[in-house]
Design a protein around this nucleic acid. Sequence first.
DNA 1: TGTAATACTGCATATTTACGCAGTATGCAA
DNA 2: TTGCATACTGCGTAAATATGCAGTATTACA
Lengths: 207, 207
Amino acid sequence: MATVLTQKQRAILDFINLHIQTEGRPPTLKEIAKRFGYASDNSVRTHLRLIHKKGLLKKEPNKARGLKTSEFFGISSLNSVNIPLIGTIAAGKPITALENLEKYISVDRELFKGNDIFALRIKGDSMKGAGINDGDIAIIHPQNDAENGEIVVAIIEEEATLKYFYKEGDRVILKASNPLYADINIDSTSGSDVKIIGKVIGLIRKL
Amino acid sequence: MATVLTQKQRAILDFINLHIQTEGRPPTLKEIAKRFGYASDNSVRTHLRLIHKKGLLKKEPNKARGLKTSEFFGISSLNSVNIPLIGTIAAGKPITALENLEKYISVDRELFKGNDIFALRIKGDSMKGAGINDGDIAIIHPQNDAENGEIVVAIIEEEATLKYFYKEGDRVILKASNPLYADINIDSTSGSDVKIIGKVIGLIRKL
DNA sequence: TGTAATACTGCATATTTACGCAGTATGCAA
DNA sequence: TTGCATACTGCGTAAATATGCAGTATTACA
């Protein structure tokens, strides 16, 4: 008898599990009580005590949201990361600022590795020759430098633009793959408004 | 320029993520302060505010352990689906058979919707004009038909190939975007070996 | 019938936790 | 220099949260 949960207990345990998975934190006693329509959170406590007796719940005393379910949720084994998708660039703001945020998208964490990677909605056809089309989503690793031939994100006149990166001595040349666009030269001496903020490490397209 | 997190901010964000994953709940301000040796939890608060400004952290005010990292925005892990990545086609097997499986990859479920969608590693440059390069991963929705102009996966001589799909009365024409490849006509009367197995709904590229 | 386990209410209190305010220090850029 | 963003301390307070205690129903079961 002592190994099986009653319906109520099962429901409460399920709710706790779900809460952790969706909210990233366990519920409080009051939140559980509210969910099940209990007037007193003490009702919940007796249930929790019983579930605990049956070994399916741990509790750290005197801690806010101290519940732990034994069915350790495998978020650590999660193979995706949510990264911000930047739609438009707001003048004077950090590129990943809230103002620029379109939404979050989920990408495979093995495929696109790195801290602080983000996604950028591409406008225009300057990189069409490289298979990057208008409306595509580029995955960006933030960095200020790159290797020759890599594709970087440059902020030119408040606009994020993709270009091929080439370095010749002290000079940096940004080339579009589309010959209609002129090369951009960045001289280390001349103060330039062009900033390289990252390197393209991947691409996602929705058809 | 603060496009990226500072080292401290990154370390704190990582700690929060790790804490959620290992403990099942976010840390409190004091727990973060203790971890980093701060005497006052207010130090943490300023850091959190800055991380929040950069869009990588949410906070539910007046809640114990109210922090949410971007991993847990929305429905967290439910944000993504794992789909099989098909590397090579083994003769005589269903396309998603184990023999063909390269691995599983995780994709955003909002971006690529549908049951039984799978990923296909693209070989060759027959669709280069459409921005699909050799080595790209195409996201496929299984279906036998399509609309004019859509890109489909056809099995031609035991090889999965991408083609534009066109229908003229009873005839189906498969065109490559690369003019070096001849069109393929499928006549409903003639027994053909060409099979359309799905439609390309998206693309993922690792650079 | 009685008794034990489950299920629930209500209130008071202690602890945890978040937050507001006031201040110091450092590096960096105009 | 001034100004500004980052980095940090310390204190006081209010809200959130857990817990202790006392009690009532209901159900299952011996």
